[in-house]
């Protein structure tokens, strides 16, 4: 076969094999194809844009429901009314103090449970006896619904700060300690054995290997648990309190001040979202070596 081939053969491959010259570029998939393709890829910019669009759609539907009175006004306030009310609360009704006390309760309880859960979780993963003695108890308490514990905390600790902190602590500690123990267990056995074969004692393995190795996933779990703290906060503040976001929401309910109820919920959402994003950002910076 000595057939002469077209030197600029861009008509595709002939029967003799591929044509010579540069192949035509394969078209890049469009953003739409990437986003809708099964397990497709995306960029950070598109991701943020999608998030904004999601919120915008939610707002549009919400406004529509109110504007066309699909839902009566006393049940669903318009977004504008909620924002206005939130502004009034902040500027005229010392709502900032309520936010402050709620944030304080959440963080105090969260820190107290982390301070106990981190060492205990690590010990559970390191020593069978600690794990054997504590895990069944923790597993049992973990399944108790937090609201069911409210009466007990009130009987034991009254209706002051202590009972609220205790309630939040119980809601998070028993979940957190198991997550921490798992994080520690997932540290590769090789890492531990490297430590032992360069002469580290168990306490040194814990401090110099297990702790840094588990840190990224531990911070993730702390972030998630902090979110749960907010859920229990509302329960604590609804039951017996005269301050806090939960208290504001619950007293507004009594007079069917729907915009105020929703303003309180919005405040929690915003605080939660910002905290979460902040911790994620810290995580990305501190653990850049993971990527």
């Amino acid at each position: 076969m000595t057939e002469q081939r077209d030197p600029h053969g861009s008509e595709g491959s002939g029967p003799d094999g591929p044509a010579s010259g540069a192949a035509p570029p394969v078209p890049e998939p469009t953003v739409w194809q990437q986003l809708t393709g099964f397990r497709g890829s995306t960029t950070r910019g598109t991701d943020i844009a999608l998030g904004v669009i999601g919120f915008a759609l939610l707002l549009a539907i919400w406004s529509g429901l109110v504007a066309f009175e699909v839902v009566p006004k006393q049940y669903l306030a318009s977004p504008q009314a909620v924002v206005v009310r939130l502004w009034e609360l902040l500027t005229r009704y010392e709502f900032l103090d309520d936010i402050g006390i709620s944030v304080y309760r959440v963080w105090l309880a969260f820190l107290l449970s982390a301070i106990v859960a981190i060492p205990l979780g690590i010990l559970m993963s390191s020593f069978r006896i600690v794990n054997g003695l504590t895990e069944p108890i923790i597993d049992f308490i973990r399944y108790l619904p937090v609201p069911a514990l409210v009466p007990l905390t009130v009987i034991w600790l009254g209706i002051g700060e202590a009972s609220k902190i205790a309630l939040l602590w119980m809601g998070t500690f028993f979940q957190l300690v198991l997550l921490i123990a798992d994080d520690a267990r997932r540290v590769p056995r090789e890492y531990v054995e490297v430590g032992m074969t360069v002469g580290a004692r168990p306490s040194q393995v814990l401090r110099h290997i297990i702790l840094p190795a588990m840190l990224p996933s531990m911070v993730d779990n702390l972030r998630i648990t902090l979110g749960w703290c907010w859920t229990y906060l509302i329960i604590a503040e609804i039951v017996a309190s005269d301050s806090g976001i939960g208290y504001v929401i619950w007293s507004a309910r009594r007079y069917v001040k729907t915009p105020e109820v929703m303003a309180g919920i919005l405040a929690i959402g915003v605080i939660g979202f910002l905290t979460d994003q902040f911790i994620r950002w810290l995580h990305r910076r501190a653990f850049a070596y993971l990527r």
């Binding site: 590769p188 090789e190 054995e193 490297v194 840094p212 190795a213 070596y289 993971l290």
Partner: peptide, 11 residues
């Protein structure tokens, strides 16, 4: 001991 898998510390 030198292990089969990568055992160096990423941090």
């Amino acid at each position: 001991m030198v292990f089969q898998s990568y055992s160096s510390f990423p941090w």
